[in-house]
Design a protein around this nucleic acid. Structure first.
Lengths: 153, 153
DNA sequence: CACAATTAGTTGCGTTCGCAACTATTTCGA
DNA sequence: TCGAAATAGTTGCGAACGCAACTAATTGTG
């Protein structure tokens, strides 16, 4: 199976999968970002830190960087912002004093509890535009590509 | 069909489709970028301008911005860089002297002819990790999402 | 035990980005 | 036809980014 006509000599960017994938990722991100940006004042790195700490209480910046695949400086700055807003707090680890355990504060837990259902609902709305067949096929393709590129968890 | 277990209360970022899509787009972009970056010294905006001008000779910056969905300042700066390197040239449009028609120079056409087959081959290699079924399903899902988000051409 | 190598996290710096403002030109409407 | 609104493209500026260098703490090795 070919993505485009085999005798096309030039490159039509509109049909180029890497370009389309980037455009789609930006579109999906924008489709969600007004929830955590406008309503909660979070940017993408901050949102990812909140999402990670929300399920992995007491994790380290290192762990967040590894599991979100963000650069450690991006994580460091996102954590600093969230701490200024009293959404998370950090305590030096007793076992290794280089590390700092990150936890949601009471306000952070409240925001997380409000935010996550809205975000999951948005994801659901988005994926509802696909038939069962399309969703299954899309997820299968995404998994194969992730595996090929070594992006899996 | 559900993407994750319905009784999962927290949000696992690793299974969150918008996050995975962004990660995949970055991974695919990196998989390609060493061709146009290391071997031809182009960054992503420059590559997109080359790809557009390569098929749409004499188009304007406006047109490039619309068809690549890049911000007009990003297009403007990419064009300026490519002009400095004598890969493209601009002439003021006779019909509308606000516009400038963009064309590949001889050197630009040579680069385009070298570059495009390599990039298309890389795309082919990437998509070869999918079965026919998976490719069909993945493209169908991508089209449906693009349509839902109004990203189509 | 001491010292080199490694690791967690932060910060300085140059780059890239998009918004807003700007110039130049064209189009629209009274 | 003249002035206001719109459009093509550029530039100033502040925000965000990643690399490299840094501090502090730990681990490994002789």
């Amino acid at each position: 199976m070919s993505v485009r006509a085999p005798n096309e000599l030039g490159l039509e960017l509109a049909g180029f999968v890497p370009y389309r994938l980037n455009r789609l990722a930006v579109g999906v991100s924008n489709h969600l970002s007004d929830i955590y940006r406008e309503r909660f004042g979070l940017d993408v790195p901050e949102w990812r830190v909140m999402a990670t700490v929300g399920t992995q209480h007491g994790c380290t910046a290192q762990h967040i960087a590894a599991s979100t695949r963000m650069h450690k400086t991006r994580v460091s700055r996102a954590i600093a912002h969230l701490e200024e807003r009293d959404l998370i707090e950090r305590v030096s680890s007793a076992a290794d004093r280089r590390e700092r355990e990150v936890r949601l504060t009471k306000a952070g837990r409240r925001m997380y509890a409000d935010l996550v259902p809205l975000v999951l609902e948005r994801e659901r709305q988005l994926l509802a535009c696909l038939t069962k067949e399309q969703l299954r096929g899309f997820l299968a393709g995404m998994e194969a590509l992730e595996s090929f590129l070594g992006l899996q968890d």
